[in-house]
Each structure stands twice: as structure tokens, then as C-alpha cells.
């Protein structure tokens, strides 16, 4: 009797343990401006790397905010936050004027706000967050810093943002090159830098036009393969 009980418990434990291990890490990609088809392009590259990847155009902020908690990779391409030259960065805009923001000191841009600062350990297992938006790596005294909030405070492995102004066409070009390069086995830092140079000469007009202001926080020498969640 004890023997059967032992086999049953072992079997149950195996099922419970094998569940999360066999599940493919998830990735979500968002185009929230005139930036298509970067989200679907990124989704295709992530799928071929072994992620369960999805893409959405003009998602609502809360959906992305909730989904972020179960993501290994989060990719956003759209507008960044700009009050004025002294108060820019710290937020990304989704549909219906909804925002994901690093934090707030009492300033509430848009109609709906969702804060990274409100996460507990929810995004600790995120491998990579890419915020392709104007000023997305810039510290805003009103709404904080997306990169440091994502990596330093909340424990994600890597985050990429941009300190300057980015135009849609250069953003699309960078995104296509970046995801292509990480799929082909380049490290995050190598792919980010090389994609920057791809933009310089592949995309009319000649020049970086803000793409050279990229910043990376965290384990920049990591690779995205094999598909996995970030280190907890």
C-alpha cells in the first residue's frame, strides 16, 4: 500500500514539476504608432528562436501591463513621453491614451496610467524588455526611468531604450535588424550596435537620426537563445 502511495506521489510531483519546465517562454510585441510591421516581424524571429510569441497593434496599456508579468521578452514600438525638454522619458504610450510609466511623483499623463513601480517581483523573470520610443532611456523627474526601474529595481535581466528622438522609419529599420541579428546568434549588445549601423546606411536618409542614443541596462552580453525566462 505504502509502495503504491509513494509511486502516486512521485508521479504527481513529476507532473507538477514538468509543467513549467516544458512550457515555452512567452514573448509579446506591440506596435503602437505608424510602426508596423515591427511587432509581427519581431514575433516571427522570436518564434524561430523557440519563444511562444504574439504581436498586437494598438494594444491597451493594461493588457500589456498584465501580460508583461508572464513575458520572457517584451517589445514595444511607439511613442515615448514628453512634457518638455526638462521632463521627458519614463513612459510609453498605448491605445486610448493609456501609458505604462516607470513611476510618478504626482504627474499623470494621459487617461490611464500603469506603473512599473507597482510590480512586486512580477517581472523579475523577464529576460529582455525593449522600449523602442523617444526618450525611453531618459530619466524624467516626473515619471522616473524605465530602464533602471525594469532592471535595477524590478530585477529583469536586460532592458534597452533610447535617450533621443527616434523617427518611425529608423525605428522600423533598427527593429528589423536587431531581431534578425539576435535570431542569428548575436549577443544583445552586438545586435544593438550593429543594428544601429544598419540604420545609418540602409535607410533613407543617411544618418543615425537618434538610433545611436541607445542604452542597455543589465546583462548586455547575453544571447536570446536558447529560449528561456530571465534569471530569478
Amino acid at each position: 500500500m505504502n509502495r503504491y502511495l509513494l509511486i502516486l506521489i512521485t508521479g504527481c510531483l513529476l507532473i507538477v514539476l514538468s509543467g513549467p519546465v516544458s512550457a515555452l517562454p512567452s514573448a509579446h510585441n506591440y506596435d503602437c504608432s505608424d510602426t508596423t510591421p515591427t511587432a509581427s516581424d519581431a514575433q516571427a524571429d522570436q518564434s524561430s528562436m523557440g519563444y511562444t510569441s504574439a504581436w498586437t497593434t494598438n494594444a491597451f496599456g493594461l493588457d500589456a501591463y498584465n501580460q508583461f508579468k508572464s513575458d520572457a521578452i517584451f517589445f514595444f514600438n511607439g511613442h515615448g513621453l514628453y512634457f518638455d525638454d526638462s521632463h521627458k522619458g519614463g513612459g510609453i504610450q498605448f491605445s486610448s491614451d493609456s501609458w505604462i510609466l516607470a513611476s510618478t511623483d504626482g504627474h499623470y499623463p494621459g487617461s490611464y496610467q500603469y506603473y512599473l513601480s507597482d510590480y512586486g517581483t512580477d517581472i523579475k523573470d523577464v529576460l529582455l524588455a525593449v522600449y523602442l520610443a523617444c526618450y525611453s532611456s531618459h530619466y524624467n523627474p516626473y515619471n522616473g526611468d524605465l530602464l533602471s526601474k525594469t532592471v535595477t529595481d524590478k530585477g529583469a535581466d536586460i532592458a534597452i531604450g533610447f535617450d533621443g528622438e527616434i523617427v518611425t522609419t529608423k525605428g522600423i529599420s533598427w527593429s528589423e535588424s536587431f531581431w534578425d541579428r539576435v535570431r542569428n546568434g548575436e549577443s544583445v549588445s552586438s545586435a544593438t550596435s550593429n543594428a544601429k549601423d544598419d540604420c545609418y546606411w540602409q535607410q533613407l536618409p543617411i544618418g543615425y537620426h537618434g538610433i545611436d542614443t541607445y542604452e542597455i541596462s543589465g546583462s548586455y552580453n547575453s544571447y536570446l537563445t536558447p529560449a528561456r525566462y530571465g534569471v530569478i
Binding site: H79, G80, L81, Y82, F83, D84, K88, G91, Q93, D97, P109, G110, C134, E165, V167, T168, T169, K170, L204, P205, H209
Partner: peptide
């Protein structure tokens, strides 16, 4: 100048 907290304008060739 920004509209809805988004920088306006861009690049034209």
C-alpha cells in the same frame, strides 16, 4: 510642441 504628451513633428526628405 507636444500633443497628448507626445513630441510632434519628425523627419522629411
Amino acid at each position: 510642441e507636444p500633443d497628448d504628451h507626445v513630441l510632434q513633428g519628425g523627419l522629411v526628405v
